[in-house]
Design a protein around this nucleic acid. Structure first.
Length: 188
DNA sequence: GTCGCGATTTGCT
DNA sequence: GCAAATCGCGACA
């Protein structure tokens, strides 16, 4: 899959994009270390949020932090939850319509450090992702400390589909996706 | 201005 | 299994 194809999918279908992001990667480096060689992380767990979903921050409103979700696809949406943890999302849907894919777990690709990247709050803490430094970044830009890299699709049998985690504001639907048997998935 | 709560995680019982 | 931690934002006064 090319970068253009991934961007196109994000722009047209949040559910499909959430599923398809499994196997794609993030390239990451510390914000304050431009010379850092960076690390790669595979996306192994995601959830989809759309405009007509009561659990979505942009449900029936386009202001405050939710306004970010109406921006063009491929931007980062980072927000603070429970006053102490951050969550990372990839903005989806065309500009003017809201949608996002929550990144719930990452698998370090090559390194020997003990990363704690299983769980949306933990991965943001591990990579030091914050509203101030990462919200609104273009994940397809060549010059950001966090970039989205297209990957090959997982085989159908490798993808597990379930209801989302921790939602209290919506009747749940199967909008969570994760890689089968991956040890980095937050909740099996 | 005050109140209540959330797409979470942790630690204690 | 359950409650605490902690803060931005919306609802209400």
């Amino acid at each position: 899959m090319t970068e253009t194809q991934l961007q196109a999918l994000l722009a047209t279908d949040t559910l499909a994009a959430a599923r398809r992001l499994l196997g794609c990667e993030f390239w990451w480096r510390p914000v304050d270390e431009p010379e850092h060689p960076g690390e790669r992380f595979r996306i192994v767990e995601t959830e989809a949020y759309t405009q007509d979903d009561p659990a979505c921050h942009a449900y029936q409103k386009n202001k405050g932090r939710a306004a970010n979700l109406y921006q063009r696809p491929g931007l980062a949406y980072v927000y603070l939850i429970y006053g102490m943890y951050h969550c990372l999302n990839v903005v989806s849907e065309p500009e003017g319509r809201a949608g996002a894919v929550l990144i719930r777990a990452l698998e370090p690709v090559n390194n020997h450090k003990e990363w704690r990247t299983h769980g949306p709050g933990r991965l943001c803490k591990a990579l030091n992702l914050t509203v101030k430094s990462h919200n609104g970044l273009d994940l397809f830009s060549k010059d950001t400390p966090l970039r989205l890299l297209p990957g090959e699709p997982l085989e159908e049998s490798r993808v597990v589909t379930t209801t989302r985690i921790g939602i209290t504001k919506a009747v749940e639907a199967p909008w969570r996706f994760y890689e089968r048997d991956n040890r980095w998935v937050s909740v099996k």
